[in-house]
């Protein structure tokens, strides 16, 4: 099989499995998987910047929260329809990503990480500061009618699963197309050697800015969808923890692979789910996994797959 056919088979099989899951999974895992799919869209957005362009951001919760609050505030206080709310969330995320990219991309390496961390922290505090509108840490709940998208009631578990799957599939196909396009290849070239990419005549700043905007846009879309599907908007999703999570998921699943973010999110979600049954200190697992990954498997699950079995894994 050619690389293209194999890639089609692999990702097609994953989507088919998930579709079959809609009918056979027991209720609890059904709900978990819907959550995992939306969160792995967030991770896929993060992966564009971290995995493919080599930009390590510690502030992606800013984009996730921009999408979530862009949608939530528009629906709650602006009274718009959920479909417009999704667009508002996406628009907020794109605008924030563009502004942050313009500023943060002037720095590199460690400084870039700290700048993104600081902007995300400022964003989190801003959400708390406007407590009367955002309800701060407590957050607010979207009521029934605010969650009916194109006539489908998203508070119904079956509809929610399919909606999550459609979003997941769209982003998966989009990312596959992106990383195989000319633009995606230039991003990988920048990750490998920025000086050389620039010498070959590519405008590396414009490409990196494009990566930040696409990555932030996907993260914002995930945030808006998460708020709409699960009916809750809260400041926790803007906190540092939610900037660390996508890094963890992508590292675990395999940075720079299309399927990695999903694998990492799925694995981590069940790991934390199981361990929180035993102890309230479940973030301990996240810490141990992070340290173990940096020490023993910096390429993650899909990275190992690529190294051992299939070198052409996209």
């Amino acid at each position: 099989m050619s690389d293209g056919a194999r890639s089609l088979a692999l990702h097609g099989a994953l989507l088919a499995l998930l579709l079959a899951g809609a009918f056979v999974l027991p209720a609890y895992h059904h709900g978990v998987l819907a959550r995992v799919m939306v969160l792995s869209v967030y991770a896929a957005g993060y992966n564009i910047m971290f995995g493919y362009t080599g930009l390590l951001s510690l502030g992606h919760a800013l984009f996730f929260a921009a999408g979530m609050y862009g949608m939530g505030l528009a629906v709650q206080h602006g009274g718009v329809t959920p479909a417009l709310g999704l667009l508002a969330g996406l628009g907020c995320g794109l605008a924030v990503a563009f502004a942050l990219g313009l500023l943060a991309l002037r720095t590199a390496g460690v400084a870039f990480m700290i700048v993104t961390l600081m902007f995300a922290q400022a964003g989190y505090l801003t959400v708390l500061y406007f407590g009367p509108y955002t309800r701060g840490d407590e957050g607010f709940v979207l009521q029934g009618a605010q969650r009916v998208l194109f006539g489908f009631d998203l508070s119904d578990a079956g509809v929610r699963y399919i909606a999550a799957l459609i979003l997941f599939a769209a982003v998966l196909v989009g990312v596959l197309a992106l990383v195989r396009s000319r633009f995606g290849r230039v991003l990988v070239a920048i990750r490998e050697n920025e000086e050389r990419a620039r010498m070959l005549g590519y405008d590396t700043f414009a490409h990196k800015l494009g990566a930040v905007v696409i990555s932030g846009g996907i993260a914002a879309l995930a945030g808006a969808a998460y708020g709409l599907l699960f009916g809750y908007v809260g400041a926790t999703f803007a906190s540092v923890q939610y900037s660390i999570f996508p890094l963890l998921w992508v590292l675990l699943g395999g940075a720079g692979t299309v399927i990695g973010p999903f694998l990492g999110t799925l694995f981590m979600f069940y790991l934390i789910d199981l361990s929180s049954g035993y102890t309230s200190a479940y973030m301990l697992i996240a810490g141990v996994v992070l340290v173990a990954l940096t020490l023993f498997a910096p390429q993650g699950l899909a990275g190992e797959l690529r190294r051992r079995i299939w070198r052409g894994l996209p």
Partner: peptide
Amino acid sequence: VLKRVNYDPERTIVATIGILYILQQVTL
């Protein structure tokens, strides 16, 4: 930990985030 990742700036940050959670949660 840090010596074994050769003090590579990015991997060190990820590793120290892990150490952060380990220390914090063990204290909890």
